[in-house]
Write a protein that binds this DNA or RNA. Sequence first.
DNA 1: ACCTGAACACCGTTCAAGT
DNA 2: ACCTGAACACCGTTCAAGT
Lengths: 203, 203
Amino acid sequence: MKKQAKKSYHHGDLHSSLVTAAIALIRSKGPNSFSMRELAKQAEVSHTAPYRHFKNKNALFNEIAQGGFQQLSERMYQAAENNPTEPKQQMLEAGTAYVELATKNPEITQLMFGGYIEDCGKELTKAGDDAFKGLLAVIENGQAAGIYQSTDSMTLALATWSMVHGFAMLISAGQLKNEIKTKKQITDMTKILETILLNGMLK
Amino acid sequence: MKKQAKKSYHHGDLHSSLVTAAIALIRSKGPNSFSMRELAKQAEVSHTAPYRHFKNKNALFNEIAQGGFQQLSERMYQAAENNPTEPKQQMLEAGTAYVELATKNPEITQLMFGGYIEDCGKELTKAGDDAFKGLLAVIENGQAAGIYQSTDSMTLALATWSMVHGFAMLISAGQLKNEIKTKKQITDMTKILETILLNGMLK
DNA sequence: ACCTGAACACCGTTCAAGT
DNA sequence: ACCTGAACACCGTTCAAGT
């Protein structure tokens, strides 16, 4: 009788239920039409209950965006681990993972980069920095192997980040719906863009 | 006595006053905190007056975003006109103009690409397509001169667009505030990123 | 410790009525 | 033709009160 499934005055794990429900709501209605009151309704609590768990809407958005950056970080480090002796492959996989994550979760991506978060807490800043550091590590592995022209890893990482970020954003904003329609077209084009970029960066 | 500066019941040119005021408001408070009621207050009319000129908030956002895309188009075509015999230079200038416009008007850029517009009217879609066509023309000029490796202009244009778009978005979202601080750093980095990309595209 | 209901100051949008 | 005021159905957030 530790955890009861039946309804009771106390929810039990409202915090994480709210996060899950919030992501679903943002996904279905967009971050703009999302409301705390509808979230509460969805979670079957009074519209003030969420404020026991999040200081305000911005704090909730911070936490969701932070989760997004953590996932991104993991994928960057995985890209390195999965291809320990092939730095070129590390970079390709990191870029592919970035686009994949962004196109799978366009709403979270918009939350992360679309200016919806007013006060960007230092935990969120750290999560964002970590993700970038993950990509930086991938580039530095390539430099250690002597495959790149430039010795400035920041610049190379920024070029890679910009390219995949831009492509991912254009897709999730629907800007390319005439040009790119299927998932296969997305992964194919990602590979081509990465190849062009690598071609410009390799020795 | 054609145009009176004095206050009167009829405003005269409320439509364009509203657009100007809306851009200023979005700039100072972000697209999320923008409200139609505050806009009306700013324009010194009743809070329902704007609805004589815009069907709703979304229609206003559409018009502002459309203006942004039109500016972008112009800059793309200018990049071609300004360097009639140098297709490489056309591409560099187009990219620089893109980043410049986005960093000068981060809020309009967010409106254009951040998912704030629910119903994207066909005029807005056309304005966006026009801007892309402008960049495509620049790439095609380069192909006609035989400078690029690939024969697929769409792919090359998309690579260019993604790179500069991603960089511009990262900056306007404040994602690079540790790495890039001054305007000069932005223009310098833009040039470097463009050079890397060109290096990957040129024959 | 956790949740609720009433309350306040906001929104977007509509519509009959005024100039 | 253009603008206003009242009205409606929403928001985010606070706070005293309930379990």
